[in-house]
Design a protein around this nucleic acid. Sequence first.
DNA 1: CTCCTTTAGATATCTAGACAAGTTACTGTG
DNA 2: CACAGTAACTTGTCTAGATATCTAAAGGAG
Lengths: 262, 262
Amino acid sequence: MATLPSGTLGTLDPASDRAVFRQIADQIRDAITKGRFTEGAKLPSEAELVEHYGVSRMTVRNALGVVQGEGLVRAEHGKGVFVRPRPPVRRLASDRFARRHREAGRSAFTVEAEAAGSRPEVDSLEIREERPSADVSTRLGGPRRVLARRRRYLLDGRPVEFAASYLPLDIAQSTPITEPNPGPGGIYARLEEAGHTLDRFDEEIRARMPSPHEIRALELAPGVPVIHLIRTAFDTAARPVEVCDTVMAADAYVLAYQLPAT
Amino acid sequence: MATLPSGTLGTLDPASDRAVFRQIADQIRDAITKGRFTEGAKLPSEAELVEHYGVSRMTVRNALGVVQGEGLVRAEHGKGVFVRPRPPVRRLASDRFARRHREAGRSAFTVEAEAAGSRPEVDSLEIREERPSADVSTRLGGPRRVLARRRRYLLDGRPVEFAASYLPLDIAQSTPITEPNPGPGGIYARLEEAGHTLDRFDEEIRARMPSPHEIRALELAPGVPVIHLIRTAFDTAARPVEVCDTVMAADAYVLAYQLPAT
DNA sequence: CTCCTTTAGATATCTAGACAAGTTACTGTG
DNA sequence: CACAGTAACTTGTCTAGATATCTAAAGGAG
């Protein structure tokens, strides 16, 4: 019933051949990107938009569905539709696996998050032996069994990443790598102690929309893609000693790399 | 009217508290990922799904909207809904700017695409002087004017990437960099000839959903994110000499990096 | 005052139908 | 045979409701 703040949203162009719900979506998107609705602000309710534009509710919902799909707004059942705040971003530097970062007694994730003023958490830690997938097996040089370590990372209670590490069983067994807490410096430190001095990492990066499982595990809002990173660690004998498969909420990460211009 | 091939899609569970359109979407997704619908195959028409599930057409369309948003299928007006084929993927190696790749007379994109058996194309080449954005200016050390080179890359007629290079005007002016074709080895070769031997590149990678403009420029299907890469090139005097802002169709790229374990 | 109930308002889901517009195949005419 | 027209089928858009469920605020009982 309350009228809209004048000027925040315009009117429809009946002459346009652009669908009505798209015109409405355009205006909402425009109002957000131009700052007429600020972060966290509540959009007019569906009923108000119905009144303002003189269309049916389904048309308004269709328009809201578009801007929801773009990740601009989030609907909360019973409360309203709100402009999505931009979450804080975690920056992954390309030297994050350098040996000098491996000395501390805690994991890289923990140290880095606390330095950035966030509260880090690791959960769903699962460690087991298993038969590797074809892809993992290929990357690791074809072992028949691997040790898999799966875990999920959270910042301030929000899940941002989950990862699975796979190591050839003959390397990992009878080392602390099979323990939930592998000790200071993490599994890379243990690998080096076991004689596998690390030489280089290969990383492959893809971006795509999440699967339903990933949406649940990362509590992703609609319209947020994931970054899929597959890292292979090689020792100085050029043997692959670990494959780490990581899925990150794309709105929480920036990856940074330094390349020599050799 | 035609009945569905038996077994491709199941039935609804009225006892489930999962919304009907989500159950239908789940079944379609499942049928695709399990290969019961292959790439390019036509899904049952909306009318057939209405009949099969005994629901209204809007509910079926809602379900189809879900799997469309996930990028699994593409609707073609008047024809039907089809399983999206996986496009060929272009792999960007981390040594793609190594000097040894800079000798050829043609651009890296052209050479690499032809080697992979694709037909490369570059269009919308625009070269002009302009005032840099705040972000570009910061990355370049604060020049007041820059040379901007914008272009779009296509493979087999499909746009896959567009990019803008920014160079401080005092470096770029009176070099072939201001020409549409900067000559063999590209602008990096010209920079080195002008005394700016390249030392390293910094790259920042983000993934997000595309803006409407990006959807048009890359002809993106719904549910396809973009990879946003910002590269800064530094010369041996540690001066930033180029910023390249690249937006790529995420379904067409894999980025590969090699990191030393130093 | 505290706690529970009610109520109003918000989004979520679903129905049944209408017309528009693109695609394909058939049909009949020249 | 060539071709224009047409019919059937497809997705796209929109309407006008209905019921369900969640949230928050108001009001009443103790």
